[in-house]
Design a protein around this nucleic acid. Structure first.
Lengths: 216, 216
DNA sequence: AGCGTTTGACTGACTGTTCAATCTAACGAG
DNA sequence: CTCGTTAGATTGAACAGTCAGTCAAACGCT
C-alpha cells in the first residue's frame, strides 16, 4: 500500500490544493460521489499522486472535511476578534449559521456539514473529528458570552457552557433548514428565532432584529 | 429501460418488503452504500425484480426514504391520539426526537434523517419529499399546541405556527447531536433543553423534567 | 548518480441495468 | 372439467461502465 508521505515545503502547498479541491467537490457532489480522479483534475495533478499523498480515498476525504471546518473556525474566530460590541458579535454568529459564505472559508461549506454528519454516523474517524470540531465551535460561543458578561451585556448568572450548548444546537437546526432551502424557514425567520432565543436566555435588552437592513 | 410495473394486491406486500429492506439498509450503511443486490437478498428476491418494481436504484431508495418517514409519522400520530394530557403529549414529542425507536416504525430511523438531509441537498426529488414530510411533522406539532390552547394549558396568544416552526427546529438540532452521540449533549440534557424551551414559549407552568424516572 | 516526486496506463473488483428464459395463475373455448 | 393461451412475475446470468488503488517508468532536483 502507498505510505502517506511528503514533508517538504513545496509539498505542503500541493497538499492544501488537494484538500481544497476535495472539500469543494464534496460540497458540490457529496462525499460518496467525489472521485479521486476529479479531485486530481481540479488540483491539477494525477490521481496516482493523490493516493501517494493520502494513501486512501477515505483518508483524503476525511482530511478534507477537517481542513474545511478548520478553515471555517479560523475565519470565524478572526472576524469575531475584530468586533467588540456584544450584540454585534452575537449577530455575526447567527448570520454565519443562517446565511452561508464566510470570507476566507472554503466555498459552500453548507453541504459539507450535512455530509459530515451523515458520514460521521458510519465512520468513527469522522465522528471523532466532528465532536472535536463542534466542541471548538462551542468554546468560541462560550468565550463570546463570557466576555459579554465581563462587559455587563449579559446577566452574570447565566451558565455559559449550558448556553453555548443549547444555542449551538438551535443554530444547527436553523442552518439545516436554511441549507435545505425550506420554504417556511426563511433566512430572516431563522435570524429572528435565534436572536430571540439568545435574548431571552441571556437576559438581553431586546434590540433590532438585524443590524444591517434586510436584503431584498 | 424497465418500466415500473405491478398493480395486483399480492404485489403490494412484496413491494413493501422491498421498501422496508431498503430503508433498513440505508439506515445501516447509508444511501450511497446500499446495493440493489443487498436489498434483494434481504427482501428475499432477485435484484432483477427490484429493478422491475422500481425501475432504477435512485427511485427505489427515494421511495424507501419516503416510506420510512411516512410510517414514522403514522406511528407518531397514532400514539399522540391515545394521550390527551398536554404536558405528556409534549414530552412524547421530545422523547421521540431525543431517544430513537418508535414502536411500529422502521428500525433505526435515525441515520435515515441525516442521510435524507444530505441526499436532499443534491436530489430534487428527495428535497421535495423532505419539505412535504417536515411540513406534515410541523402540522402535527401545531395541532397539539392548538389543542393545548383549547384545553387551557397553553397561553392563548401564542402563535401556533411560529412555535411549531421554531420548536421543530430545536428538536432537529437536538436529535442530530443525540444521533451523532455527542458527549456533551446527552439524551437527558437534550430533553431538558427542549422542555424548557417549550415551557417558556408556551407560558407553561414549570413541571418535572421527566415523567418517568431517568433510565440509569 | 541517487533520491523523492510525479505520471498515466493498467487491473481487478464491483455493481446497476438489461434480457432471454422460466414459472404461475387466471381464463375461456370446447 | 380440461387444456391451450396469455399476461404478468421472477429468475439468473451476462453486459458494460466505473473507479480505487498499483506499478513501472520518467522527471528533476541536489
Amino acid at each position: 500500500m502507498a505510505e502517506a508521505a511528503p514533508q517538504t515545503e513545496g509539498n505542503e502547498a500541493r497538499r492544501r490544493a488537494m484538500l481544497q479541491a476535495a472539500a469543494e467537490l464534496i460540497s458540490e457532489r457529496g462525499y460518496g460521489d467525489t472521485r479521486i480522479a476529479d479531485v486530481a483534475k481540479r488540483a491539477g495533478t494525477s490521481s496516482g499522486l493523490v493516493i501517494y499523498y493520502f494513501g486512501t480515498r477515505d483518508r483524503l476525504l476525511v482530511d478534507a472535511l477537517r481542513f474545511s471546518e478548520e478553515s471555517y473556525y479560523d475565519a470565524a474566530s478572526r472576524l469575531l476578534d475584530e468586533q467588540r460590541d456584544f450584540r454585534r458579535r452575537l449577530s455575526m454568529l447567527v448570520e454565519w449559521s443562517c446565511v452561508p459564505e464566510l470570507p476566507g472559508e472554503v466555498h459552500g461549506s453548507w453541504g459539507l456539514w450535512l455530509d459530515l454528519w451523515s458520514t460521521a454516523l458510519r465512520h468513527p474517524e469522522v465522528r471523532e473529528a466532528r465532536v472535536e470540531l463542534d466542541s471548538r465551535w462551542r468554546d468560541l460561543v462560550e468565550r463570546i458570552v463570557r466576555e459579554g458578561q465581563e462587559s455587563g451585556d449579559v446577566r452574570a448568572d447565566v451558565g455559559t457552557r449550558r448556553f453555548a450548548l443549547s444555542f449551538t444546537v438551535v443554530l444547527d437546526g436553523l442552518s439545516t433548514q436554511v441549507a435545505l432551502d425550506d420554504p417556511e424557514i426563511t433566512s430572516d425567520l431563522a435570524h429572528d428565532i435565534a436572536m430571540e432565543y439568545a435574548e431571552h436566555e441571556l437576559g438581553l435588552a431586546k434590540g433590532p432584529r438585524r443590524l444591517k437592513p434586510r436584503k431584498r
